[in-house]
Computed example of a mutant assay.
Amino acid sequence: MTLTKKKEGGWTLASDLWPTARALNAATAQDISSEPLLQVADFAQHHFALPHADCTITSELDIRFGLGSSTALRLGVLLAAAALHQNLTTLDEHTKLEAAALAFRMQRVQQSFASGYDVLTQALGGVILWTPDYQNWPGQYLKKLDPKPLIPYLQVFVGGAGAPTSTVGGSVRTALQDSGRQRDFYEASNQCIRGWLNLWQEGAHALPKLCQDVATQRRIFAGLPYFPEQLFHNFEFLPGFDQSWTAKTTGAGGEDAILLIGTHGDTEEATACLAREGWYPLPVHPIEHGASLYSGALS
């Protein structure tokens, strides 16, 4: 994304999701409340005292991939606006956390159930071991881990139908509550987190237990709205599934991205299965590649 000051004309916004650029001063209140880019631009214009700016958003990643695109969008604009406001070329961690907190508040307007883990990870990078404090978000994150030990065991595949977070997340949350499985889901999710940390620390030795933990969590999702039942049914016929390798969805629980968890040797047939169903590897590996931000002229 690029954000540059100009002398007049208010904010002009261009996105590769829109056919033409849009002027912020022509947007209605309904437009601003429903469009993340208009929402964050309207806030940044006043919060950072930037009355006139050109903002351009481009992305190589489809919003259907389930990788937190709306939070990344808000965070990117806020970080760039902070850089312009303070005339900085780099931002310290404190400023990044302040921007993340602002992005999280906006996220909660549209997704009241959001925890903010996505925007915090996007702001700080790495693997975040963190207990949120919703009274003073984010509170103290406990530890930031180097993600490289996970590289041999993680592959990300995209190409599904997508899962609109508000719609899918709300439906899944309601279904869990109505079925009395919400507590089971939280416990299973916490166990998965512990499994990921053990994989990070111990490598292949911890993989079978993580496979079991992921399978337990997935069984709670099975049958809920938007879950890709057929894809996981196909996996069940492949050798080693939920034993030496496993798979899970990202995002709100629908057909977003798919994580293959296991070595390349163990997931070879799963990769072929995904390819037959139209899935393909994410163009960039989330661990091997960082993000860059260009805030334009800082004058």
Rank of each mutant, 00 (worst) to 15 (best):
I151F: 13
L282M: 03
R183T: 15
L73E: 08
E98A: 11
K144C: 12
C192H: 05
W11L: 07
E98G: 04
L259E: 01
N25C: 13
S34G: 07
K7N: 14
L78E: 07
H289V: 14
L142F: 04
Q122E: 07
T271F: 06
A72M: 04
P281C: 05
L197Q: 08
T12H: 08
L150F: 06
F65N: 10
G203K: 04
H46P: 09
A297S: 13
H47A: 11
V172C: 10
V156P: 06
A215G: 08
W200R: 09
T249E: 08
L79I: 10
D213V: 12
S115V: 01
G68I: 09
A80H: 00
Q45T: 00
H47T: 01
S70E: 00
T174K: 15
Q86M: 11
Q217V: 13
D118A: 02
D184A: 15
L207P: 10
P147Q: 14
A188C: 05
V119R: 03
V77T: 01
T95M: 13
A81D: 02
M106H: 11
D178Q: 15
E268K: 15
H46A: 15
V284L: 15
T131S: 14
P225Y: 02
A247Y: 02
E236T: 11
L91V: 11
I57S: 14
H205C: 08
F43K: 05
A247W: 02
D146G: 03
R183W: 08
P208T: 00
A188S: 09
E236H: 14
R181C: 11
G66W: 08
L37K: 07
N136E: 13
A275H: 13
S112I: 08
L274G: 01
A103Q: 02
Y294R: 11
L50F: 03
S179E: 02
E35S: 14
N87I: 05
E8V: 06
I57N: 02
K148N: 09
K148L: 13
D213K: 10
L224E: 03
E277Y: 11
T56A: 14
Y117T: 08
A81F: 10
G265I: 01
G240E: 00
Y186C: 15
H264S: 15
L67A: 12
Q135A: 12
T174G: 10
E268A: 15
I220T: 03
G116D: 06
P149V: 01
A163M: 02
S189G: 05
T216G: 11
V77H: 04
L3D: 01
R219E: 15
S292H: 13
R105H: 12
L37V: 05
G116A: 05
L38E: 04
E277S: 13
L24P: 01
G169L: 06
A270G: 11
S70W: 05
I57L: 14
G180H: 00
T20F: 14
L260D: 11
S171K: 07
L142G: 11
G126F: 02
V77I: 11
P132K: 04
G116V: 04
K5N: 12
L88N: 13
F237N: 15
V158E: 07
Q182E: 14
